[in-house]
């Protein structure tokens, strides 16, 4: 019913140009920068996948890291135990995280608001503990994958995945009947049901789809890093960062998660380079989030709009009491 928004010519040109630039990146920049670019691509994909669930559907999950970790471990195990090639393992782990999320979603999606956030968080913690005690996963020792030292390969894998998630968000969530139904669930679930929408099915699908993307990206991450560990792929910080990136950039938008991921990841890497491994990053992160939620509830993406309104308006907005946000 909803007509596809007419793509204006300049937008398409900019999109294609940036794709070309991004494709030539490996031959232009140093391998250090390329690794950072790979990391950015990974986090763009993760933030966008979280945004499908948290942004378009309004279900704030703190357990999305579990899908990432499960995907990473499944890919690792398939490659090490069954000696499957990487891409086959990646696809299988995507399918498994999808099914897995369907099973997890069945009970957790009956919760809403903060209960859903707590439920998913508890579930992710359960997964971490499980992987810690299991023998097959290597327990606290972690899991080693066959090494593959080709920076260009991983850059293109992550780039491809980020692009896939981006296009899915664009076509299935921004401009489709399905996207409108998902937003209806976010706005008022009871009303959506009275309109004949099968909200249970919609919720399960979105949860499983966004988990699947996180799982596939987790699998690619495992192969890239070659060594995974319960804390590195199933720690709470993975999910937390996805949430924060989306909030920082602009929740429920297409470009918000992209901007949030870039800003946060680059900031993180810069601080790592400047101060080494320290908790200062977390403190600054916390502070940044407080500021964004208080003064810029719609994220960095709304910054131009805030500035465009008169200076007086911007000041009024800055010092007016915070507006209600969705978290």
């Amino acid at each position: 019913m909803l007509k596809m928004k007419q793509l204006t010519q300049p937008r398409v040109i900019i999109f294609i140009l940036s794709l070309i630039v991004l494709c030539t990146l490996p031959w232009v920049v140093s391998s250090f920068i390329l690794r950072i670019a790979t990391g950015i691509m990974m986090w763009i994909g993760l933030a966008l996948s979280w945004n499908m669930l948290g942004g378009y559907m309004g279900y704030i999950s703190f357990g999305h890291g579990a899908s990432f970790g499960v995907g990473a471990y499944i890919t690792g195990l398939l490659m090490m135990l069954l000696h499957l090639p990487f891409f086959v393992a990646l696809i299988i782990s995507g399918v498994i995280t999808y099914i897995f999320a369907m099973i997890v979603g069945y009970p957790t999606l009956r919760l809403s608001g903060s209960y859903f956030a707590i439920g998913t968080w508890a579930f992710a913690e359960m997964m971490r503990q499980l992987v810690l005690v299991l023998d097959t996963t290597g327990g606290p020792e972690g899991l080693r994958l066959p090494p593959m030292l080709n920076d260009n390969f991983f850059y293109f894998v992550m780039f491809g995945l980020a692009l896939l998630v981006f296009l899915t968000a664009y076509f299935f969530f921004e401009n489709s009947d399905f996207g409108l139904k998902v937003k209806a669930v976010r706005e008022e679930e009871v009303a959506a049901r009275t309109l004949g929408l099968n909200t249970t099915w919609i919720k399960n699908q979105v949860f499983a789809l966004s988990s699947m993307f996180a799982g596939i990206i987790g699998g690619a991450f495992a192969y890239w890093i070659t060594y995974i560990h319960p804390d590195s792929v199933l720690g709470p910080l993975i999910a937390d960062q996805m949430v924060i990136m989306v909030l920082l950039g602009g929740i429920g938008t297409l470009f918000g998660p992209v901007i949030g991921a870039i800003v946060l990841y680059v900031g993180n890497q810069y601080m790592l380079a400047a101060w080494g491994q320290s908790s200062a990053y977390l403190i600054i992160l916390g502070l940044a989030i407080c500021l964004v939620i208080l003064f810029l509830p719609e994220g960095l993406l709304s910054l131009p709009r805030v500035f465009k309104s008169t200076t007086k308006g911007a000041f009024a907005r800055l010092f007016s009491p915070p507006r209600k946000t969705r978290i």
Binding site: L180, K183, A184, E187, E188, V190, A191, A192, T194, L195
Partner: peptide
């Protein structure tokens, strides 16, 4: 069709 109490608006749409 049930029109719920409080009108059940999808406010942002």
């Amino acid at each position: 069709s049930h029109v719920p109490e409080g009108r059940g608006m999808l406010t942002k749409l």
